[in-house]
């Protein structure tokens, strides 16, 4: 994209400058990540501690997995506000299935079915019902939370099956399972988006839906698949969340996860209107948010002010991306 801005001309005068612009527009998140990482290590020596680093990864893994699904939805030109509520609902259903059957496998299976079904419904509303994704998933957000609250009678439910907590609390070498799952999911979604036709179609549909349809793409099916995939990833996140403390709260689990996930996607450079963005960008967006949270804790910033800082970072990120 560097020197071809002006149709076929080849302006050599501004080559160096345009290379720099290109570097920035392609890799601005990574550059921002490196700057923030270096600044953090200078500001607080405890930041670089390996345990602290692993702790950051552990803390971002749940939001990270949710944000992967959110990236795909936003690339398709939509948005999914229901992720937090669906996470709570999946958690509650998982614990119930787990306790009723005594089998971890059935618990996991239930989680995956509930999450992807909620996503499927979102997709159906958006694709076939032609409801704006913001509205459809806002409805799902309210409905899923309400069902979770009703089933759990407003409280928490706890698992009674031994071994379920291992999912989130065991580790392989130095990495906790959730971190490994997050990176594995990132790799899978990356391959899906960049090496398969599904990914190609999502980009096409997010960029120009009518042209995608006129290119003989089954736009409706792709949309339904996109929201189902987001739901599936939410269930993976829900399993980890539930397993971590062996319980899930119908009222407070997953609250505001949609905002954190959207923030990570936006910081990662994905365009709100779809068609443009990268999975790798979201990965670094998630890491940037994680480092910021971590630094604010290390530096004893009041928890009440942490939202302010996060908000500021999101807005700065978007302002810089507009520049290109």
């Amino acid at each position: 994209m560097a020197n071809t801005n002006v149709k076929e001309y080849n302006p050599q005068v501004s080559n160096a400058k345009s290379r720099l612009t290109w570097l920035w527009s392609e890799y601005s998140v990574i550059i921002a990540f490196i700057i923030i990482f270096i600044a953090s290590s200078i500001m607080n020596p405890r930041f670089l501690d390996i345990n602290n680093q692993l702790n950051i990864l552990m803390q971002v893994s749940i939001i990270g997995i949710v944000a992967l699904g959110m990236t795909v939805v936003m690339l398709s030109g939509g948005i999914d506000l229901s992720v937090g509520s669906v996470l709570a609902l999946v958690g509650v259903m998982t614990v119930l299935a787990l306790n009723a059957s005594g089998s971890i496998l059935i618990g996991i299976f239930t989680a995956l079915v509930v999450g992807s079904f909620a996503g499927f419904l979102n997709g159906l509303m958006v694709a076939k019902g032609r409801i704006a994704s913001f509205i459809a998933t806002l409805g799902m957000m309210a409905a899923a939370r309400s069902i979770a609250l009703y089933i759990a009678e407003g409280g928490s439910v706890s698992g009674e099956v031994k071994g379920f907590t291992a999912i989130a609390n065991n580790d392989l070498w130095i990495f906790d399972y959730p971190v490994i799952i997050f990176f594995a999911m990132t790799a899978l979604v990356y391959i899906l988006m960049h090496k398969t036709r599904f990914g190609r179609y999502v980009y096409a549909l997010g960029s120009n839906e009518k042209a995608a349809m006129l290119s003989a793409i089954r736009v409706d099916r792709i949309k339904i698949a996109v929201y189902s995939l987001a739901g599936l990833l939410v269930s993976v996140a829900a399993i980890i969340e539930t397993s971590r403390l062996n319980s899930i709260s119908s009222s407070s689990s997953g609250v505001q996860y949609e905002l954190d996930a959207i923030a990570a996607v936006i910081i990662g450079g994905t365009r709100m209107t779809g068609g443009r963005g990268k999975i790798i960008g979201t990965l670094f967006g998630v890491l940037i948010l994680g480092i910021l949270n971590n630094m604010m804790n290390l530096m004893n910033v009041s928890p009440y002010l942490q939202g302010f800082v996060k908000g500021l970072i999101i807005i700065i990120a978007v302002v810089f991306q507009k520049r290109e």
């Binding site: 398969t196 190609r200 960029s207 120009n208």
Partner: peptide, 27 residues
């Protein structure tokens, strides 16, 4: 109606016949 402006020239060319470029499901 025709071009997908965020896709590359090559990807626009292959958009309607991706099957021709796949091997075991990967482009």
């Amino acid at each position: 109606n025709a071009i997908i402006k965020d896709l590359s020239v090559i990807h626009n060319m292959s958009l309607s016949s991706i099957g021709n470029f796949e091997k075991s499901g990967f482009i």
